[in-house]
């Protein structure tokens, strides 16, 4: 984990309200793993006061990419950052996505809206690992992305997933890209159709979506990982501000920043 001031390479609008930012940061990139996040001071000074947690969208050897949606003051400030400007980064933080233990079956990725962000980094890591192991040709491990967004224009990065041979199913709130509905509708349908065995599932999106994913997969014996979003102050496990209820007896809360942000669905209770 590092604290460093890093130059922005790119900061582009890629969909309405969605920005893709690339930051040159060899030290953080060297340590970073999919599922982790960085805390960014989005603007100097006291407004906004706190850093903002953003998950890693892509990790390369010397830089990281962040995909974010402009929601409040922090992301607004971030969206105004120009290439060449420096941002103060703390990271990488949190626990990464555990990689699938099995090298066969189907790996499900479930994304809702901007929740697509950490799943690209994960998909690239899984694909890379399979290539290294030379197992790709056997094609006994398939990745399937179930992706819901507001409109067709908000479905981003699809070709990047497809390039890796990942099958992508889309759905939108307004029916402009794929059927009309939510990512969880795709999941519901997927679970009752014959696809072969699911070996792991990874989901990121709005809290109600994650709750439904947890419910729909409750009877599955495979690991289901949820990547949570939460307001944070320190991002390092010290302030205890970003709690989520734990299912285990004996502990009441877990810290999203330090114990997560990726959790096994069975370990937490989403209110």
């Amino acid at each position: 984990m590092r604290l460093s001031n890093c130059p922005v390479n790119r900061n582009l609008v890629i969909a309405p309200g969605y920005f893709l930012m690339e930051i040159e940061t060899p030290e953080i990139a060297a340590e970073a793993q999919p599922g982790q996040f960085v805390m960014i001071k989005t603007r100097e000074g006291r407004e906004p006061l706190l850093r903002r947690p953003l998950s890693l969208h892509r990790v390369s050897s010397t830089s990281i990419e962040l995909l974010y949606q402009v929601i409040g003051k922090g992301t607004q400030a971030l969206s105004q950052t120009r290439p060449g400007e420096f941002l103060d980064l703390l990271g990488p933080l949190g626990k990464p996505f555990p990689l699938p233990a099995s090298s066969s079956g189907i790996i499900l990725l479930v994304a809702g809206g901007i929740g697509i962000a950490p799943l690209l980094a994960l998909a690239e890591q899984i694909s890379e690992r399979l290539k290294v192991k030379g197992q790709r040709s056997k094609a006994n491990l398939k990745i399937h992305l179930l992706y819901g967004a507001k409109t067709k224009a908000h479905l981003v990065r699809i070709s990047d997933f497809q390039k890796m041979g990942i099958e992508v199913s889309t759905i939108t709130d307004d029916g402009s890209g794929g059927r009309k509905g939510l990512a969880t509708d795709l999941l519901r349908k997927f679970l009752v159709s014959p696809h072969g065995n699911i070996s792991a599932a990874y989901a990121c999106g709005p809290r109600p979506m994650l709750k439904t994913v947890a419910q729909l997969t409750r009877n599955k014996t495979v690991p289901v990982y949820l990547s949570l979003e939460e307001m944070m102050a320190c991002g390092m496990g010290a302030c205890l501000g970003c709690s989520v209820r734990a299912r285990a007896s004996g502990i009441k809360y877990l810290r999203v920043c330090q114990d997560g942000p990726v959790f096994l669905a069975e370990d937490i209770i989403l209110d």
């Binding site: 006061l49 706190l50 307001m231 944070m232 102050a233 205890l240 501000g241 970003c242 502990i251």
Partner: peptide, 23 residues
């Protein structure tokens, strides 16, 4: 002590509002 129910944080103008509850 387990601390208070989340959410426990809110950002305010040049300020931070917390309700950790001494976890």
């Amino acid at each position: 002590r387990p601390g208070n129910s989340p959410p426990r944080l809110a950002e305010t103008p040049a300020g931070l509002l917390n309700s950790i509850g001494l976890e």
